[in-house]
Computed example of a mutant assay.
Amino acid sequence: MTTTESLPSDIYAIADVHGRADLLEAMLGYIATASNDHRAKPVVIFLGDLIDRGPDSPKVLDQVCSTLDIYPDSQLILGNHDFYLRELLRGALTDEDAVNWMDWGGVATVSAYSKRPVPDFENIAADIRRVFPHHVDLVENALTFKEIGRFCFVHAGIRPGVQLANQSDYDLRWIRAGFLDHMDVFDHVVLHGHTITKSLRPEVYSNRIALDTGAYRTSRLSAAVIRRDELSRFICTELTGTGTIQVGEWRPD
Rank of each mutant, 00 (worst) to 15 (best):
W101L: 08
C65T: 14
N100C: 02
D171E: 13
G157S: 12
D169G: 10
V64R: 04
S114K: 04
R130M: 13
Y12I: 09
T2V: 15
T244N: 12
G105W: 02
P55Y: 07
D62S: 13
I77E: 03
Y113S: 04
R39K: 13
C152S: 13
R228Y: 10
I209D: 03
V247G: 06
L61F: 08
D37G: 07
H192P: 02
F145G: 10
E238M: 10
F132R: 13
S66M: 12
P160S: 09
A126Y: 04
V110N: 04
A156P: 02
G106E: 04
F121A: 11
T67Y: 08
H194N: 12
Y84M: 15
R233T: 13
W174H: 13
G248W: 04
D69L: 09
V107H: 06
S9C: 10
D127T: 02
K146R: 14
H188I: 10
I124L: 07
D37K: 12
A32D: 15
E238W: 05
S168N: 07
E122C: 08
S232G: 11
L143D: 05
V225D: 03
T4E: 08
K41H: 00
G106M: 05
I196N: 07
M1N: 13
V185P: 04
R53C: 08
A13Q: 02
A112R: 01
S6D: 14
S74T: 13
G157D: 11
R86E: 15
A223W: 04
V17G: 02
F121N: 11
V185S: 14
L7P: 00
E122K: 11
Q63C: 03
S114M: 05
C152Q: 11
V44N: 06
D253F: 06
R116N: 05
A165S: 14
T144M: 13
D171H: 10
T240A: 08
V139E: 01
A165N: 11
Y216C: 15
E96D: 15
R39H: 13
K59A: 14
F145L: 10
G79H: 08
M102K: 11
D229M: 00
L93P: 03
F83D: 15
Q167W: 02
F132L: 09
H81W: 08
D52V: 12
D49Y: 06
S199C: 10
H155Q: 12
G214E: 14
G54E: 06
G193A: 10
S199A: 15
N123L: 10
S111I: 09
G105C: 08
L78K: 05
V110A: 00
R217Q: 14
T244M: 10
S6E: 14
L7A: 09
R130D: 14
H155C: 12
D37T: 15
A13L: 03
D181H: 06
K59T: 15
M27S: 03
V247M: 05
D56Y: 03
V118E: 06
T67P: 00
E140Q: 11
D137L: 08
D16R: 01
T242N: 14
D69P: 04
R228C: 12
L76C: 06
G161T: 12
R251K: 13
A210V: 09
S222Q: 10
R86M: 15
L164D: 09
L78A: 09
D62G: 05
L76Q: 06
V110K: 00
E140C: 01
C65W: 07
F179I: 06
R116Y: 02
